[in-house]
Structures are given as structure tokens and as C-alpha cells.
Amino acid sequence: MTTKELKQMANRLRMDVVETIHHVEDGHPGPCMSIAEIITVLYFSEMNIRPEEPRWPLRDRCILSKGHACPIQYAAMARKGYFDMDELKKLRKLDGILQGHPDMNKTPGIDSVSGSLGNGVGIGLGIALGCRMQGIDNFVYVIIGDGEQQEGVVWEAAMAAAKHKVGNLIVLADCNNNQSGGKVTELSSLYPASEKWSSFQWHVQEIDGHDVEAIKNAIANAKAVTDRPSYIECRTIKGKNIPYMENNNAWHKRVPTKEEVEIARKYLGGAV
């Protein structure tokens, strides 16, 4: 995909999320919007995956540690062909395969349970070690939020990952400075986060998390570092590209009305 196509796809996925959450009347739209470009670059540019063979052992892995943003991952996976687009309409419903938070057994292509915050980096470390021990040449991507880095187990995993020199582990942090209860900077003292990861002996980069070229370049840089895990701090905007959602934490979990869906469609460039 070209850069232009990736940008369009990110907005298309945003629109999928707005329509899905409107349709099923439940979900977290704001946190999806800030990772639209990250998810798009991973699924449509970077990851070596086979949607027709979801458990292909040599595949790259993607752990969405901030699992509440799964609607946008599901949208990307549907568009990649893991399952039918109609499944999105059954998100969070008893007869659907898409759980409220990712489930590796119910949804083909999901690599781990996630959603209980803070746990993705440790899972990713285990996968990275398991693949390396079996001589599998792949990469494990973990998408974490900034708020979830308040969980102590993130740092347990960060410490151990550096010790084990897992060059195949790449963490992308969606740093939108918002969490359920308010601003990350007001609720706790995470920032400067990249300095913390740096002191934990990770390879660290800071980028604009909505710039698909920057994400691609950062991943290329991370892949070139083989003796350390990588942390890519992606500066993002919660609710990005939908003005009424941008930086408005009321949209952490909220259902858009029919009118709001149409407004979103207008701003997302009629991509859908």
C-alpha cells in the first residue's frame, strides 16, 4: 500500500469503528481513533501474516494490550479477510466471534487474550522468547496505552525483556495522554516515559503516531536493532480525525448517535 492508501485505510477503519459501535450500541470509540494509523501500518504494511492460516507458526504477532480498542483491530482484521465484515455487527453479542475484549480462541487471528491492562508486554516477551527458542525469525508487536503503563507488571516485563535481549519484541505506545478517569499526567507521573524505557535499556524512539511514514520508519529502525527490545512512543490524539471526539474523554466509552455517525463520515473524507 502507498502512503496515501494507508492514510485512507486508517480513516476507513475509523469509520468502521463508528458504524460498528453505533450499530451494537456499545464500545470504546475514542481509544480506537488514536491507534488507527498504528493498526493500519501493522496489518496493511508491516506484519507477515496469513489471514487464511491464522495460526501459521511463523507469523508476526500483534498483541493489543489496550484491548478495549479492539473494534479497530477487528475492523482491520475483517478487511484483511480473517472473517466476514458482517461479524462487526455482532461485536459484543452472544452469537458473535468478537468479544468485548480480544479472545484468542473465539476470534481467528487474535494472538492473545488482552484487555486487562498492563499485561501485554509480558505476554509479548513470552512469545518473543518462544519464537526465538524455536528458531522462528519473526517480530512480536505489542500496542500499549500510556495510562496502562501505570501498572507495575509493565515494568517487570520491561526489565526482563532487556535482560533477555529480545530484539524481536517491538512495543508501540499509544500516548494520547488520556485514560478512563482523566489526563494521564494528572492521574500519575508516567512522563517522561521514553526516558524510563531508555533507562530500562530498551531502544527508544519518539514519533508522531498519526504519521504512517514515521511509523513505518520507526518499525524499520526497531527491526534493525537485534540485541534490545524496542519502544516506540507514538504521540497521538484520542478521538483523532473526528472533531467532536478529539481529546474529549467523554468518548472513551460512548455510543455515537445517527447524526454523529454522519458527521464522522463527513470528516473521515467519505472514505467508506
Binding site: I127, V153, A160
Partner: peptide, 17 residues
Amino acid sequence: AEQNAVLVAAGLATTGM
């Protein structure tokens, strides 16, 4: 770090270890 130990084990198990 017991929590991380369990997570690492879970990750390993998904790869067949």
C-alpha cells in the same frame, strides 16, 4: 516478578512451548 513470570509462560505456551 511472579505476575510477569505467568505472562511470559502464557506467551511461551501460545508458541507451542
